[in-house]
Design a protein around this nucleic acid. Sequence first.
DNA 1: TAAAAATACTCCATAGGTATTTTAT
DNA 2: ATAAAATACCTATGGAGTATTTTTA
Lengths: 296, 296
Amino acid sequence: MKLRDLEYILTIAEMKSFVKAAEHCNVSQSTLSIQLKKVEEYLGVQIFERSNKNVMLTRVGEDICTCARIMLQESQKIKMISKKNKDPLAGDFYFGSYPTMGPYIFPKLISIFFAHFPKTKVYFIEEKAEVLADKLEEGIVDCALIGLPIEKKNMTSVELFWEPYYLAVPICHPLAKKKSIVMGDIKDETLLLLEQDHCLTDHILSELCTDIGVGKTDNYRATSLETLKNMVAIGTGVTIVPKIALPAEDKNIAYIPFESREIGHSIGLSWRNNSPANDICLALYEVIKGIDFFSK
Amino acid sequence: MKLRDLEYILTIAEMKSFVKAAEHCNVSQSTLSIQLKKVEEYLGVQIFERSNKNVMLTRVGEDICTCARIMLQESQKIKMISKKNKDPLAGDFYFGSYPTMGPYIFPKLISIFFAHFPKTKVYFIEEKAEVLADKLEEGIVDCALIGLPIEKKNMTSVELFWEPYYLAVPICHPLAKKKSIVMGDIKDETLLLLEQDHCLTDHILSELCTDIGVGKTDNYRATSLETLKNMVAIGTGVTIVPKIALPAEDKNIAYIPFESREIGHSIGLSWRNNSPANDICLALYEVIKGIDFFSK
DNA sequence: TAAAAATACTCCATAGGTATTTTAT
DNA sequence: ATAAAATACCTATGGAGTATTTTTA
């Protein structure tokens, strides 16, 4: 039993004639007779009561037609859905970013999409790196601005820029006068950090500050960089922030670069190799690789 | 796009693997690859995002699967409907009768169906001959006890019996003493009849009493034979009733046969030649042709 | 006798199989 | 190197056409 057979059946039912239905379906009358016979044999029921002068649905035939109509409607729906989604640029596109970058980059991206991919409907998603990588992998997110390297299979990643970290200290703090910082400088400071499972926190604790006392940071966990900065401003401690979070000016906090250019992270664009949005991702990369992410 | 393709797609989506889906569908992996590719090309959209290690539905693919599931469900429904209706004896059967016979014959038929076609669900329909013939033709009724001949195409009719008409007169009426009647005897009587479009009325007026005054019957039209008999009993007039309507005994009315055996009608069983219930009709005929329709 | 469905016979498109190649980890 | 998807090539089923036969009003 094929969809075509159902079309034949519905047409015969409508036309009440094999000859007319054959014309309508652009096939020969014999094709209809044979196909109908096959379906009836396959199902073991008579769908039409017919003589050479009369064609009429049986009661079973009517019930079958009800189902057949639904099936063909759904089949049309599949074609409609496909038609609407044929152009990959005209579909939905889920763009992800790590949280500290999101608020700064999303507005820029909106303009970029409006100018370069006006038909694409973009949704923005903000998650910490690990979750973002999972969502990328699962197909929930199509493309993400994320710290590299990313430990997932089937991913294409391109580097966009290196984002250095800065030390934030109260303006009156002794370190505030320094031109640059080394890790040793802050080993006796109270280091304020974001929540335990935040990617920036993870990165700082597991890669950058492995040699300094970590235990003393345990009691100070904020949920946003802005909160952290406020805490620094009132002298609760110091913190490390990515360059993007630096304000144009700040009367209460001094932001000091690290001496080593290694203190920071590489930021790139990642997407699944076989994503249908592959073309958009590549095109997007071509557009945004040139922009200055730190211009406000 | 065929139903089989949709099964393939749903299985691949479920198994997230071409090899496993192929096993499950009992086809080779290449078949799935090729068929899926064809469907994707036909629809112009990518249904799966796939590498050699990963198979995942795209968003369009998910929408397509939703439709595909409905289609396959309906397809199963068609098979279920067919399975339930494979046995023609286990289906619905609509039996029609002309109204004067209905009340007498239906109880008998119920026993017959219970004994001979216990799986058949019978529905009884009572209509005047003309409507009954239309319903037979339209397939609303499968088989009918009806006056012959019947002017419809594609019908098989078999005669069951000849039903003579009787004259009903009040017990005290002069004609009540007669052994038999000729039409001339009642040409001065008030002839009570059923409604204008009743088949018995039609038959009496158009074929039997064409030569007697008809105008004088116009004011007396009842809706049932029982009403007519009551009117006869109180002396309103006389009437003509089919034999089936004769009571075992009647203190108030005398029922007198007509001299001519022609006054009456031939009753038969009719059904459409190509009806799926053909076998039941034939078998039913074999059973009921032997019974005495006039035994109470 | 005419009109419509059923059947006979033929052809070819395509679903499916086997074997092989490509691809990505 | 391995495992899975893609591809190449061949086979066979069955859908469709033309011509003919059967059926019934």
